[in-house]
Structure formats: structure tokens, C-alpha cells
Simulated assay, not measured.
Amino acid sequence: MSRAAIVGWAHSPFGKLEDPDVESLIGRVAADALVHAGVAPADVDAITVGVYNNGFSKQGFEASMVALAVPELAYTPATHMENACATGSAAIYSALDFIESGRGRIALVVGAEKMTGIPTAAVGDVLLSGCYRKEEAEVDAGFAGIFGRIAQHYFQRHGDRSEELAMIAAKNHRHGLANPLAHMRKDFGFDFCNTVSDKNPRVAGPLRRTDCSLVSDGAAALVLADEETAMSLARAVRFRARQHVNDFLPLSRRDPIAFEGARRAWTKAREDAGIAIDDLDLVETHDCFTVAEMIEYEAMGLAAPGEGWRVAREGQSSRGGRLPVNLSGGLKSRGHPIGATGVSQHVMAAMQLMGEAGEMQLDGAALAGVFNMGGAAVANYVSILERLK
């Protein structure tokens, strides 16, 4: 089967933005992505829009907003996708299915979220809609509390790994210095990340503020095309493999530190691509919390179960290490506007493969992995990307 390819993109800054709503954020990137791809609006066969919302805004029906930014797209089919923190990847995969089924040649994908327009306490409650409320809604500190519990389980089984979590946080903030689009471009250093203080208090369980991703606004967009069309355009990054694997929503139904759905998605994607983990040049992974990145090292095959902390301690995931992870700064530094995150991760990987990553650029990057998850490793998406042209 012919695989679709990324042929263009656009990306807003992430952070606390002046843009008043999701509509304005979509407007930042939709037209620019088409210009970057060299594609006219008339050539777009479908639009998918990833916005989580669930209370961030009273305005829904986000798929209709792309045409407000690009009026020429008014009669193009547009669909809204939502899959918790994997909303952006869900939108991408829907567009890929559309193209690879032969229903069209070109699709526009937009991911966006306006998170800072409501009070901080309300943000926590909105995010809890990504957990199993029947069992987990009363956990202190919201979604951070969910991952605080995951960290506690990990520590009980494999020892206190607070230092390694601080190493992951420091690494991602250090990488993020090179990303002009990142929400938090500051090198906090290991000592600050590893020390509980007024500026870095405990948030939930063993997790400190520096172990938690940011509440961000932002948008990102991709233009996808079939291979034949892609080869006629200026750039093409092919999906060599992609997998989506789900797991049980309630943590009570599974081993909370196994991330089994993520492991299965990575295994299937590597098999489909015909590669080993060491064939990858870089990975953009879902570090909503530092403990998530540590367990994801195990899920992707960088470490055996219970030994993901070694990857951080030995510098394997740093620039210059065995497999650089989150050269963009990840969710920790780049930011985590829910609907935009999965799209952003794919943009960051595509930039690397096309040699367009600026100060973030890794020399010789030819094969990249992307992991985006919804909930606590419930919806797991893995993409293996390679430059086609």
C-alpha cells in the first residue's frame, strides 16, 4: 500500500498567547501550511481538525472554523477529531486513512487548543475528563495526581528515581533552548529540577513542578498527500509505519507502570517499518510528566521494564546520546496545548528529516519516531517517519 507523506506545515509559538480563542489559533496556521506545501486551497480534498476542548471553550464545532480562516475551503469536507491528549495524532491518522484509501490526494490537518482562557483550577477539572472519572476523579491534583500515583508505583517497585526524573526535566529544558517556538525556553539545570523549593514545589506524590508539562495555547498544521502527489512538491516526509493501539481506560484494569498499549504500538510500528530501535535517529515522545517519558523508554525498547531510569542517568536520550529524545524540548519545554500536541510532534520530526530544524537540527537525521498518547497511555500512537524527497 502506498503511504501518505507530509508535504508542508505551519506552527505557532506555544505559550500563554494573546489569541482570544481556538478560531484565531486555527487562523494562525491553516493558510500558512498550504503556502509552505505549495498547495492551493482548491486542491485540498479533506480537512481534519484536532481540538480537545471538553470545557476549555463553550464554542464547539471546531472543524467549521478552518473555512473562516481560508474562505476558499468553505465547501471542503471538514471533520473534528478528539482523543484526549492524542487528539492531534487522531486527526493526522484520520487524514492518512482518507488519502491511503484512495478517497482523495491532499488533506489539511490542524491541531489547536486555547487552554489559558479559563482559571487554572478549571483546567485541572477539564483534563480529568481524560481519565476514568468513576474511579479517578477524586485524585488530588487532577491529572498530575494520576501520574503522581504512577510515579509512586514505579518507585515502590524499582526504587526512588526522583533524580532520574529531574535529569529528564533538565534535559528537555536544555533541548528547548534551541526551539524558538517553545513555551519555556530556560535551562533550569539538574540541581533546580531535583530540589523541592518554593519555586519548584511538590505537585502530586513525588512529582515536582518541573516534572509536569505546561498549560499552553498554540496550534500546528500539516498538509498530507499521496506519494505520487508528494513527489511533485518541494518536500516529502513519508509515514514508513504508523500504529494506533488502545488500552483499558481505568488504571485499576491494568499494570499502571507497564504502558502495555504503548509497548504494543511501538513493537508493531518497528515490525511494520522493518527496523530496530537503534535504527532511529531521534524520537519525539509524550512527556506530559517526566515519569511518562521514563516509562516510554521501556515501551519503545530503549530499556528493559524497570530500567528506563538508566536511559536518563546514562545520557542516552540527550543530544549526542544513543537516541536523542525530544530535541524540540518536548511537552516539558515546548508546551502542551492538547489538540495541537500530536500535530506539533510530527512537525518537529518532519523539520529534522528535511534539515529545516534550525538550531534544533540533528546532523544526518534520516529516520524519526513519534509517540503521542491520550490519557495515561490509553490511546497510543506511534509514527515512523522518513524523508521521501
Rank of each mutant, 00 (worst) to 15 (best):
V109C: 05
V109T: 07
V110S: 12
V110P: 09
V110H: 09
V110F: 09
V110A: 11
G111V: 11
G111H: 13
G111L: 11
G111F: 10
A112T: 06
A112M: 04
A112P: 08
E113M: 06
E113H: 07
E113T: 02
E113W: 08
E113Y: 07
K114I: 01
K114E: 00
K114Y: 00
M115W: 00
M115V: 00
M115T: 02
M115Y: 01
M115I: 01
T116S: 12
T116P: 01
T116Y: 01
T116R: 01
T116V: 03
T116N: 13
G117I: 00
G117Q: 09
G117T: 05
G117V: 00
I118H: 04
I118R: 01
I118L: 04
I118Y: 05
I118F: 07
I118T: 03
I118S: 04
P119Q: 07
P119D: 12
P119E: 09
P119H: 06
T120H: 07
A121M: 05
A121Q: 10
A122G: 05
V123K: 00
V123M: 04
V123E: 03
V123W: 04
G124P: 07
D125K: 13
D125P: 00
D125R: 10
D125F: 00
V126H: 09
V126E: 06
V126F: 07
V126Q: 04
V126A: 08
L127E: 09
L127G: 01
L127A: 08
L127Y: 08
L128D: 04
L128T: 13
L128W: 01
L128R: 04
S129R: 11
G130F: 01
C131T: 15
C131E: 05
Y132N: 14
Y132H: 15
Y132V: 05
Y132D: 15
Y132P: 06
R133M: 14
R133Q: 13
K134G: 15
E135G: 14
E135P: 02
E135A: 15
E136W: 07
E136G: 08
E136M: 08
E136Y: 07
E136A: 10
A137K: 10
A137P: 00
A137C: 06
E138C: 09
E138K: 10
E138Y: 11
E138A: 13
E138H: 12
E138D: 13
E138W: 05
E138Q: 14
V139H: 10
V139C: 10
V139S: 05
D140L: 06
D140A: 15
A141D: 14
A141P: 03
G142P: 06
G142K: 01
G142M: 00
F143S: 05
A144D: 14
A144V: 03
A144E: 11
G145A: 08
G145H: 11
G145T: 08
G145Y: 09
G145W: 08
I146F: 02
I146K: 10
I146D: 12
F147V: 04
F147S: 09
G148N: 06
R149L: 15
R149P: 00
R149K: 12
